[in-house]
Structures are given as C-alpha cells and as structure tokens.
Design a binder for these strands. Structure first.
Length: 865
RNA sequence: GCGGGAGUGCCGGAGUCUGGAAAACGGGACAGCCUCAAGAGCUGUUGGCUUAGUGCCUACGCAGGUUCAAAUCCUGUCUCCCGCACCA
C-alpha cells in the first residue's frame, strides 16, 4: 500500500534524524526493556522474528508513553558457528558474512519501525566488545572461577567442537542435532557450580519470571540433600556412596559402580575378573551415553568379584558395575536397595539378588518375594536398628543421617546436578582465550596490558579444523612468564560467554576504557523487562545470572539478578514445525510489509493470539488488520458534523478504553488491547458525524497515542503534533465514563434473564404479581420508557438496545402481566396487585464490574407472587 | 515417572481470579446493497429445532458435587502440547 509505505518512510527517517529514541541517564524513572539479541543469520527476518520484536517494541513504547526513561537497545550476537560454516560453504570470510547479515537485519528491524536506541548497538565480534570478554576471563581466573581440566566432555563431530552440558539436548547437539560423543579432553571450565546454591535460592526473588522457566532452572541445578556414606571394601580401602535415602541403609543388598569410575579397574586389577570387567566397560562406554542412561534402557551389569561391608550392620554385599549409574553424579557409586528403589529392584530381579524390606506401609506387611515393584512411598522403618524401627521413614532420614555423622560412618552433604560450564570451543569465529602454553610454565594467562588478543582476520578456510592452528603469526608467541617459546591457545570462547553480559555493555556501549561505567550500569540495571524465547531457560538465562553474581562479587555490580521480569514469547509454527530457514518453511516479512504496510503487519501479528502462545501461521487474517488500519487512517479526515449527540457516549467509551487497557499492556495481553481498541475505533467511526469537533479531535488524538504502540507510523501521522512516540499517556477522566450508559444493555437483559430464572424456579406460569425493586441509582431511561410508554405496542421499529426493551415488555406480557407503572420510589409494581403477601422472595444481585472508585449499588429485587 | 500449560462456534481467541443474558474482537463462509465488472466499503446471517414469535432445546473435553444460579468454585477423570528424565 503506497500511502502507508510513504508514511513509514517519512517517520522512520524523522525518528532517526531527531534521535527520538536515544536516551541518557536522567532524573526520570528508568525502564530497561530488552529483547534477547539476535544471532544475525544470512536469511531475513521471518514472521516469527517480526512477532517477537513487535512484542518488545509495544512494551517499550507503552512504557515510554507512561513517562519512563526507556532504554531499549539492540545488538548482535555475532560470533558463532553458522558464520563460520557459511564461510566454508560459500567461501566468504565469517566477518564479511556477519557484517552483511547484520546490515540486512538492521534494515529489517528498522523497517519494522522498532523504537531502538540504535546508537548503542553492540556487536560481539568487535574487538571493542570481545576484549572485555578476555579481561573477564582473566578476572575469573584470578578469582579461581576458571580452571583447566581433563575430563569427559561432550563432543559434536559435526560442529567439530566440544559443547557445554546445557548445549546437549537428549544426547544431541543443540545446534545441529547430531549425536554427541563423549571424549576425554583437557578444556577450560567456568565454575558455575560455586554459585549453584545462590542460583537456586534467588529464583525465589524472581517474581516476574514464568513459573515454568524457574522450575526448569531448579531441576537443572538439581539440588538434593543426602548423606555420603563410607563402605569398607573387603580386603581393601573404602568406597563412598551418596544417598538421599539413609533410612534404607539396612536394606542394602548390593553396590553398584559406574563403569567409568576409575576405582573399578583398581579393584579388579590382577583378579580373574579383570578381563571380563574390562570387556564390559569397553562395551558400555562405547554405547551412546544418552541412550545408555535413558530411563527405559534395559539395565545391565556385572559382578566384579568384590564385596563391600555395610558400616551399620557389617553385612557383606556384592559389588556390581552397571550401565545405569552415572559417573559424574555423587561419587559415581550407589548403595542399592532393591526393596525401595525401582531401578535397584529391576536390577536385583534380573541378577537374582535378594530383596530386603526395611520400610513398610502402616497398614499392612510387604512380601519381598511377591512384590512387583519397589515400595517407595512413605512408611514405617522395620528390620533396621532397634532405635529406628517403628519410626516414620521421613523422620528416620533425619535421625539416621545424624547417627551416621556421630558414628563417623559418613557425613551429610548436598549434591547438585549442575556441572561446571565448559567454555572452550575448537572453532575460529569466537573470542580468543588469552592464554599461552609453554613447556615449562604450562598454561600462562596473559597480562591485562597485553589485551586485546585480536582474532586474526587473514586466515584460510579449508574446512578442516580450526584455521587458527595453521596461523603461525598467531600461534607462535613468547611465554609471558619465562620468555621461552610458547604457543597461543587456539580455542575460542563459547558464544554464550559473550551473551552473558552484553546487557551491561548496552548501558555504556562506547566506553573504550572500561567494560562499562559503574555509574551508568547502576542507573540502568537491572533489566526491568526481558523478552525472549523459552529455549534459553537453562542456557543463556542461567549463564547470565551466574555472570551477574560473579561480577557482583568482583565488586563491579551492586545487584544480584540481571532480569527482574521475563516474558517468553510463543513460537510461530508453519506446517507443524517451528518457522526456520533450515526447515524451509519461512514466511518473510518483506512481502507482507510491501503489500499492507508494516503497521498492519504488526497489528495482525499481535492480534493473532496472546504473545506468549505459539501460533500456527495463517496469513489470511492480515486482511482484517489492513482494513482496520485503513479505518484508523481515515479518521484523519473529519467529515461533516451533523450533530453532537454522541459526544457523551464517545467520551465515555474513550475513557473506558484508556482505563481498561493499561493493565492489559502490563500483562502483555496485547491481543486484548487490540480487540478493545478495535471496538472503540468502530464506535468512533460509526458516530463520527455526530460528534463535536473537540470531542472528535480529543478522541482521535488519544486513540493515536494508545494505538501508537502497535501502529506507530500511522499514529504519528494521525497525531499531528510533535511525536506521538514521545507523547504522554492520555489522562484518564473517570467522570466521563457513564456507567448508566455502559450498563444499559446489561441491565435490561440480565433483568429479563433474572425474571426468567425466577419463573422457572417457582414454576409459576402466570404469577399474580411481580415486583421489581430497583435501587434509586438505577435511573435508567430505558426502564422509564418501557414502563411509562410501553403499552404493549411492539411494532415500532427499533434497533439495538431497544429491541431488548421490546423483549422485556413482550415477555412480561406473555406471562400474563398487565401494565406497569413507575412510581416515585422507582419501585415497579403490577397495577392489579393483590393484597396477598409475598410468598417467596429472591434476591438477585446484579453486579457490574467494579471500577475501583465506585461500586455500583446495582441490585434488583424481584418479588414474585 | 516429574514439572509447566491447554481443552469454549467453521477457525484464532475473549470470558475463569471476583459465579449472574456464553461466544467480545478478528478471520472464514453465505446472502444483500453499491459497481459494467472486480476490489474496497456497507448491511445482515453463520449450534439445533421451529408454527418464524417477544418461542423451545442443546452447548464451554468427560463424569459427579456445591449453589436459586457454574465455562467460572470443588472432586474425580480423559486428551493434547512443552520441558526434564535411571541423579541414587
């Protein structure tokens, strides 16, 4: 639509020129609205993106209108694999690819009309940004939060790099969905586990976060309280196990070690079992780890010929190794209680190991022979030490824990599922890790002054491994410590490192001297409203929280959490799958914008459904949004005034609208805002000839302010003075809301239904008398009309509300009721009333939604005889 | 198995917190007006029955319960989507 397109261009240029959305620290209340910054890929923005960014923009614009000093920045998560892969595939440099992508992203975001503060753009691939990554790395190292360790790590062959635990989804690489292998490698880890407890605890203060995301983090951190118990190995040293169920300690009938547990080979060394055990381990370890440890995988194990001694009763139990035990959790060894753990139960059945009952239900006995599954419910301790028998097992967990500590059999501990974060990546397009290796000094961190370590740009991509490995100038350096020959670290940082603090950099993105000015960060942070996808629940959202806590402990920040409120948008699906380039089911925004104008597209995308819900793409509805925008735009031209009979009504509707939508905005109920605004626009449009100039102007002006969040360009045009984007939210004038007017229809119809209900209730076909007692406040004209004039003439032509009045009259008449009159007390009584007294009385409350200031006395009593 | 969420016309979705004419708002379909025509715009219809009434009946996943009154509150149950998953 040409006209809309012209308007868009005009205003986008003006916004840019006048720096309308640029902000500085000032005395106003600040509001930091942030969307997760995008990864700039070569393909354009599709409808999923458009919807997401529209959501953020509506909120930011709303807050701006409400008088906040709104920081709403945009940037690019510009390092990462896809750029590198594109480089290999298409033969262009990742930098070039990224620059190009960022450019096209920027253009498309601008085309969307989003009110970003463009001067603050952050690009993580700029030295100016990533040098601070390097500084941070050194700081982490200094504080003992970074360490290098040889460990079993997740390796994605397809991406040619290791991955963090969080980046493995059901055994597959989060990015390419190829199976992940386990490799023993020496890598850099970030000690996120140090903050495990705080990360868990502080979830409680994140009231503005979706429950779902918090639960996901909670289970990812996976805290469990238990006891570490020492078992002696017969003729050997001791073996520690971790258990959350010390109450079942007397029911232990075997032990199981993870095959990877180094203790295993030590134990069998030189015994006749050695070969067999080795074969078993090799077999199990070769298997895909995810499959092996899936819940429905058949349990397999092997007795290793050794026995352990239960510290509390001296019982000797056989030691097994088995596929279902995870090496990394707890001590990589478990005490098995088949009576009270389903996994142990299955294993015991398979290998014919005895089952011993030590907890039983209150009411009946258990027979270990006949049990079909383990008893895991709450019960009573039996067959254990005398002092615990008869105790409720939950209580026994506590007591036995204490007992074990007292007897020095073990100690109470806490275990987490959370693992340290592996940040090394064997890829080129990322932040170089500021480390030099040297034969003498091992791994030497660089001095701060030597930063930044620039990522060399002049390199060759042959598709084989990390090109940095072949870049001599980069590779060969002097050891900073001994000045001998050293070799630079060629691994780069996980890009989630970049995104863990970018929101801080926005506060002061051009600072050359520091990561950020503490003062500026203090003003803007924390982010008031964060918006992004739920898929980052245990990735970015967890890492960023960790960074903030760590930086706080470095003395750089003075708050505990980066994001006060979080909104997770829904995904746009097409043909049953998430819209994405790789699936080839994208609908790009450009064509649609070209045809209908961007405001229509924005309105359409947000009217579809609640922004938090996933939607299946169906472009048909755009027509409706387009019609709506046309109608809105046509309000620019005032038609001839016939009369001003609707002034009151329109003002009432207008103020009602302003009142109602504010909380909808806060709750992200944008679909509701839009439907309410549409309702108002229809009303205004319908009666535009019956309005005084003032009222019309006021209506259009206020409408354009509230609607500017959704349709900023057309609304700028409509507003006509200054920038609507910087206007003040319209003042609510509650007095103009005419409740009588607004509730008229409601009142009549509900009265009808009340009478109906009452009639049904008392089963009187022809009641002798019906009395309606109406409160003084209900001076509804309609009632007067119906009851004064309504002589049963139902044939006068009426519409709308008045139709209802006919319905009321007719209905009453049909029920055999004669004329009514309205008396001074606003009591309505049947004329031919009997003196007989009322037999039944039903009070029917007619409650109208409260308006906060004045609750209506709305109450009608219907008395029937 | 655990956790989160959802079941309402042909479709997307309001309404549920705070019980009181179910279906706001939008899409789609159908009919009419306007047009040479198309589009746009406007008007109406869109659960069933119907003698066409100002009528009756049925309906908010299913089954119960509370209540004068339930989509809404309570109990049970089914289905679907999403996340985690042998963590001892």
């Amino acid at each position: 639509m040409k006209e809309f397109r012209d308007i868009e261009e005009k205003w986008q240029k003006r916004w840019d020129k006048d720096k309308v959305f640029e902000v500085d620290e000032n005395k106003k209340n600040k509001c930091y609205v942030l969307e997760m910054f995008p990864y700039p890929s070569g393909s354009g923005l599709h409808m999923g993106h458009s919807r997401n960014y529209a959501i953020g923009d509506v909120y930011a614009r709303f807050k701006r209108l409400k008088g906040f000093n709104v920081l709403y920045p945009m940037g690019f998560d510009a390092f990462g694999l896809p750029a590198e892969n594109a480089a290999i595939k298409e033969g262009i440099h990742p930098k070039e690819y990224t620059d190009k992508s960022i450019k096209s992203f920027t253009n498309q975001l601008k085309a969307l009309g989003n009110s970003y503060s463009w001067s603050r753009v952050v690009r993580t691939c700029d030295v100016n940004y990533y040098k601070w990554n390097q500084l941070l790395f050194l700081k982490f190292l200094e504080k003992g939060l970074v360490y290098r360790k040889k460990a079993p790590v997740n390796w994605c062959e397809h991406c040619g790099t290791v991955l963090a635990n969080e980046q493995v989804e059901q055994g597959e690489c989060w990015r390419c969905h190829n199976p992940v292998e386990v490799k023993q490698l020496e890598q850099w880890f970030l000690k996120i586990t140090k903050y495990a407890d705080e990360l868990l605890k502080d979830l409680k203060i994140l009231e503005g976060w979706p429950e779902k995301i918090k639960k996901m983090q909670e289970s990812w951190i996976g805290k469990s309280k238990g006891v570490e118990i020492k078992f002696k190995i017969k003729d050997g040293e001791e073996l520690k196990v971790f258990t959350t169920r010390p109450d079942t300690l007397w029911g232990v009938t075997f032990m199981v070690l993870a095959p990877e547990n180094p203790k295993v080979m030590e134990l069998v060394k030189g015994t006749e079992k050695e070969k067999e055990v080795k074969r078993f381990i090799d077999k199990v370890v070769l298997e895909d780890k995810y499959e092996r440890t899936a819940e429905d995988t058949e349990k397999e194990g092997l007795f290793i010929g050794k026995y352990a001694i239960n510290p509390v009763n001296g019982a000797e139990v056989p030691i097994y190794i088995a596929n279902f035990v995870v090496a990394e959790y707890g001590t990589g060894a478990v005490m098995a209680v088949p009576g009270h753990d389903q996994r142990d139960f299955e294993f015991a059945k398979k290998y014919k190991i005895p089952i011993k009952i030590v907890i039983k239900p209150k009411e009946h006995e258990l027979d270990a022979e006949k049990m079909m599954r383990a008893f895991v419910d709450v019960g009573v301790v039996v067959n254990s030490a005398d002092e615990f028998n008869g105790m409720n097992n939950l209580e026994a967990i506590e007591e036995i824990g204490k007992y074990l500590e007292k007897e020095k059999f073990g100690k109470r501990t806490v275990e987490y599922k959370l693992r340290d974060w592996l940040i090394s990546r064997q890829r080129y397009w990322g932040t170089p890790i500021p480390i030099v290796y040297c034969d003498k000094c091992v791994a030497v961190p660089l001095n701060e002054k030597e930063l930044p370590i620039k990522l060399p740009e002049d390199i060759k991509f042959d598709g084989e491994g990390n090109p940095l490995l072949k870049k001599k100038e980069f590779l060969e350096v002097k050891c900073p410590k001994c000045k001998g020959n050293g070799r630079r670290e060629t691994d780069t940082m996980d890009t989630f490192f970049d995104s863990s603090w970018y929101f801080l950099r926005y506060c002061d993105s051009k600072n050359e001297k520091e990561m950020f000015s503490k003062k500026k960060v203090k003003y803007w942070m924390p982010v008031d409203q964060y918006i992004g996808g739920a898929e980052h629940a245990v990735l970015h959202l967890l890492y960023a929280r960790f960074f903030v806590k760590a930086l706080r402990d470095f003395g750089l920040l003075n708050f505990d959490e980066p994001f006060l409120k979080l909104f997770t948008q829904g995904v746009v699906y097409k043909e049953g799958a998430r819209m994405s380039k790789s699936r080839g089911n994208v609908v790009v925004q450009d064509d649609m914008i070209e045809r209908y104008g961007v405001d229509s597209v924005r309105v359409f995308l947000l009217s579809l459904s609640h922004p938090g819900k996933t939607v299946e793409w169906d472009g048909k509805g755009i027509e409706g949004a387009y019609k709506f925008m046309n109608k809105v735009y046509s309000l620019k031209e005032k038609v001839k005034i016939k009369d001003n009979s609707k002034d009151k009504n329109v003002l009432s509707k207008l103020n009602l609208l302003i009142k109602n939508i504010e909380s909808d905005f806060e709750n992200f109920d944008f679909n509701l805002v839009l439907s309410k605004v549409m309702g108002f626009v229809n009303y205004l449009y319908k009666f535009r000839e019956n309005l005084s100039e003032e009222v019309y102007k006021e209506s259009v002006s206020k409408l354009s302010i509230v609607l500017s969040c959704f349709a900023p360009h057309v609304c700028e045009e409509l507003y006509g003075e200054d920038y609507v984007s910087l206007a003040d939210w319209p003042q609510l004038n509650s007095k103009k809301i005419d409740l009588e007017l607004e509730n008229l229809e409601n009142f009549v119809s509900s009265t009808i239904s009340d009478i109906n209900n009452v009639l049904k209730l008392v089963k009187i076909e022809n009641p002798k008398k019906i009395t309606l007692l109406v409160a003084e406040e209900w001076k509804y004209k309609l009632y007067e009309k119906v009851l004064k004039e309504g002589k049963g003439d139902m044939k006068f032509k009426v519409k709308g509300k008045e139709k209802e009045s006919i319905k009321l009259l007719g209905m009453l008449k049909k029920k055999g009721l004669p004329k009514f009159i309205l008396n001074q007390k606003k009591e309505l009584e049947a004329l031919e009333s009997e003196k007989e007294f009322i037999e039944k009385e039903f009070k029917l409350k007619l409650e109208i939604k409260k308006d906060g200031e004045k609750a209506l006395p709305g109450k009608v009593q219907i008395l029937i005889e």
